[in-house]
Amino acid sequence: MLIFAVFVFYPFARNIYLSMYSTPPFPNLPSQFVGLSQYGQVLVSHNFLNSLWVTALFVVYTVPAGLVLGLLLALLAHQKLRGIRAFRTVFASPVATSVAVASVIFFTLLNPQVGLFTYWLGQQDQLSVLDNPTWALVAVSVVTIWQNVGLAFILMSAGLQAVPDELLEACEIDGAKRWARLRHVILPLLSPTIFFAVVVGTILSLQSFGQIDLLTQGGPLQRTNLLVYNIYDQVFNQNNAGRAAVMAIALFWITLVLALIQIRLLERRVTYAN
């Protein structure tokens, strides 16, 4: 409880307090109470709306792709094959990789001079994709998908193992072909897991920060300026805690509302066995 108080409740309250004070342009001047008017200013500002749009795109790019890849890998790894354990470990390994390490790996791969990906794409000695306004967000998304696949894989594998063998055998005798078995039996039984993975994945994506900080710093032209990075930028680079506090509260509400909508929408379509 004390830990909660120190690390959750106090910062939360302090954040609301900050969001009502305009931060002065110079550090030594007193901050001024402006109430909710700061919300009006920030929430319609181009900077915030851009962040919102970029974040939305980022979620759309990363969550479904990570999920589908994780599911495919889990289905592959569920086969009874020799040496499959090694693959399981490999597939799950992105989870154990920190964002920083993943970012550095991809930063190197995408390096315009020595990067392997750049070489494959035939983009040597051109502008790095990370500096390309059109592709930077996609590149950052790819890193994130790679990272999220590990978690999705682990969740889906656990879900698959919970499907009783007897059911799959019944399928075999009933004559369900591979695709019918997947569509009519495995996926419905996995739906609670998929549902959980969608909610968790969305929240994780909304909170992405490390890869932006390391790869693009929100650039080029703010095209990768995700909300959390923007908040960080407002506080530490622009010295504007007030604006940052407003955005943080906006992010909180967005996350909450999205999660609630997902729970409402998906729960109706989810099958809980027994």
Binding site: P164, E166, L167, E169, A170, I173, H184, V185, P188, L189, S191, T271, A273, N274
Partner: peptide
């Protein structure tokens, strides 16, 4: 056709 010990009905 086979009848399984735990029936193996499709729960959904």
């Amino acid at each position: 056709a086979m009848v399984f010990q735990n029936y193996a009905l499709y729960p959904h």
